[in-house]
Structures are given as C-alpha cells and as structure tokens.
Design a protein around this nucleic acid. Sequence first.
RNA 1: GUAGAUAUAGCUCAGCUGGUUAGAGCGUCGGAUUGUGAUUCCGAAGGUCGUGGGUUCGAGCCCCAUUAUUUACCCCA
Length: 462
Amino acid sequence: MQKPSIPKGTRDFGPAQVARRQHIFNVIRRTFESFGYAPLETPTLENLSVLTGKYGDEGDQLLFKVLNSGDFAKDVTAEDLATGSKALLPKVAEKGLRYDLTVPFARYVAMNRGTLTFPFKRYQMQPVWRADRPQRGRYREFYQCDADVVGTDSLLCEAEIVLMIAQVMNGLGLDDFTIKINHRGVLRGMYEALNSEGSETDLLVTIDKFDKIGLDGMRKELLEKGFSESIIVKLALLFGVSEVGAGQFIEKLNRIRREFGLDDYVEGDRGLRELAEVHDLLTASGFKQFDRLEFDPTLARGLSYYTGCIFEVKINNVQMGSVSGGGRYDNLTGAFGLPGVSGVGFSFGVDRLYDCLEALDLFTVTAETPTRCLLTHFDAASGRAALPLLAQLRAAGIPSELYPDASKLQKQFKYADAKGIPLVIIMGPEEVAAGVVKIKIMQTGVERVLPVGEVVAGLTLE
RNA sequence: GUAGAUAUAGCUCAGCUGGUUAGAGCGUCGGAUUGUGAUUCCGAAGGUCGUGGGUUCGAGCCCCAUUAUUUACCCCA
C-alpha cells in the first residue's frame, strides 16, 4: 500500500472550504457583471507557442509543460539529448498549462477579432499553474479572476477598475486595504529625469522594492547593479513623496512632478495627467474611499507589457502579497498578429483573498452541507413513509435529505449536528400512525408537532 | 535556482542531559439514554516516532544520507 499524496503546491478543498471559496467567487462575479463584463472560459492547455516568450525568461521556466501524447520521445535524437533541454523541449512537448488568464484572453481576441464587438469586456475565473516554489500565499495551482476590456483608450476603464476593486473588498468585509496606483509613464519619466542611466528595468525592479527594503536597501542594490551615486541621491526624493498621506492623491502627483521636473518629459507628463483624470472620474462617479487609494510612484510590477496605469492591492492587516493587480497594455495582442489594440485589466487572486479572510476571521459561511432539513426514521416502513414529504420539501426549495440507514436515532441526530443541519424531522411509527411529524430546531432544542400536510407551509414561513 | 526550519495517534502537539511498557487535548467508536444532537459521566480502539544507515550496553532524542512538508530570498496572484 502506498501513502496517498497530492502534488506539491496543490490543495484539496473540503465542503466547508468550497462554500467559502464560492462566496468569494460570487462577490467577484456579481461585481464584474454589474459593470457589464461577460464571462469567458479558455482551455486549461494552451500551445506552448502561445505561452512562451510572454512572461520573460523566468516566466518560461515556471511554465508547466505537457508531454506529447503517445511516444513523446519518438523524434528525439542522441544529438538533442547531448545539446540539452532547450533542444529537447520542442520535440517532446507542444502544450503547456495556462500561466495566467491575460495571455489566453489576448489569444482569444486575436483569433476572434472578426466576430467580437468592441470595446470587448470579459471576465474570467479559472485556475492557472506555475511551477514555483510554494510558500505563504503562493501555490502551484491557484485561481485568478480577471476582468479586462480591450478596444478603448478611455480612462473610465481605469476608474472603473478602482470602483470594482473597492466593491469587492467591501463585499468581502475587508476594510483595511490599499489600492496602489501608478503609471508606466511616470516611471519612464523618472528614469529619463535621472539621465536614462543604466537599464530601465533594473532601475524599476529596485524602485519597486522601496517599501520593502527602504532607501538603504535600494542604494545597496543599485550600486551592485552599477548605478552611480548621484542617481541614488535623487531617488531619495521619493522618500519625501512617500510621506505624503495616502489620501493626498493630487498633492502627491504634484510633488512628483516638481521633484523630478516631469513637465519636461512627454511620458512623465502624460502619466501624471492620466492619473489626475482617473482621480477626477472617480470623484464624478461618487467614489468615497479616497483614503484607500494611493498614488505610489514606486509601484512598478514585474510584467513588462504594461504601458499605462498600473494597479496593485494590499491587505494591510495581514502578512500577504498583493491580492490583486493589473494595468493597461497597448499592444498585448500584437504578438498574435493584431497590433494596436489597447486594453486594460486586472486580476484577483482568490486563494490569497481566502487566506486573508481566514487570517482575519471574516468568514461567515462555514456550512459543511447545503442541507437544511434532515428526515430521520426508524425502520423500512417509516423510512418509506417519509419519501413523499422529502419530495415536497425539495420541491419547496428546502434542501433536504433522509438519513439513508435506519440507525439509532442518536446517530442520526449526531449526523445532523456534525453537519450543521438546522432542522430535524422525526417520523417514527407513532408519528406515521397519527399523520404528524415532530420537528426539532437544533439550535434551540425546541420541538413541535405538525400534521404532515402543514410541514412545508410551516417551514416556508420561517 | 539560493538559504533555513520541521517530520511522534485521524488532527493539533508534549516527550527533560540518550535509560523499562512513548503521553495529552480534540476527534472516532461503545455505554449511561433499545425515540433525541451539542452539554455531562464512564470505557475502548488507534503509533514499526517520515525512510535508510551509523554511534551506543541502550536512540523518539546524537551523527550521516534520503524523502516530504514549510518559511525566507529571486519572482509573483
């Protein structure tokens, strides 16, 4: 006999966990749909040609590749083996598990360009897989909930993303969150204002860690990467900006504009103006939680395809990575032969949201079963006599079940208690003979007797 | 890929400088109550101490290896 196990970084979800996860999905789905996004699903497997090269070198390594069916080694030569895995891979695997939902979406848009009505708004809630080392808040199989709109440059989309994030957070009962927003143009402008020294990516990757490693950490890392001391001195200006309160959105924009002289840089100026416009649209939309919205000029995000606004959401009172992120991309479908389509989207990490809600003890849903009413019985005759009532309860929309075996009543009650079933109906020989049932409300222990014909009406009233 | 931690009953964990028969809580099962759960009382079952080697008169404890899990870094939801 072998010890059963599941692959590293994957989880089973029991009934209570699924109920709680469904609650999260429902809040997100309702929000997406209320903003006019329509559901889309794409295959678990994508061709590797679609996936590779979209997430950088590191991303390619984190892709799960799927061996070809049949004799996957039939095209492999001794030479391939000698050359190594790079030569081998395309011969043994042509498919992979999806790594995120954005690239499959881009592929879908490119393939269906002729039939889609633009702007096209879709949401997608499906699992994705990454061959990462698992750790806190990081799994190898996890669900993303994406909403994207393609085919419009309107900043209303960005504003609505903020509205949707806030609506989901509020809907889940998470109140200590921060929606961080920045703009790729602002980052570009800062880079240019620093004389475009070194690699922009190297600089931004380090700036992104500012809140984690501080000024000293940045200094150390940038020096290691070969940046000059003068750049680091200028970056210290960020420190001052970060001290402006989270709610002081416009004030922070102006501060960055002044400190880095971004008026002189086209991209930097565009970024600041667009962020101000998003802020305006939010005000006009009646958005109230500006203390939860923070312009963070150090927010960079790894994915390279963002070109406009970028978002990230943190839950402040839990030790956890971002629970949501996204941004605008001008050319996502370009790789699939459809250039010039602008889109903006974002994603919720359901598994991280779950971990946050659990850590904060915010789950109200804990049911082990949807059953609301358990019918007990004593023998074959009383069990059979319960079947018509069982059917009536179900028809009335009350999820019900008859205990399958004529076990001791004690055992049947323990079953109801363990599963949190609120009502137990006792239908023994005495009740059957009298044409009544005994109903027990588990929480209070109160029992009452009702004629069989009045049970459904009586329960529906409550 | 780099570095650390952990592995003992179904679950969460004790187990002293190495010393007879490895413990607790929860859960499970049985009984007190052959027609009543949660509460109370009584009782029972359940462990080759992750695996393989080594040191020792003697190893759950020390050493080595291995596997699994987990945390941090890189990167990310």
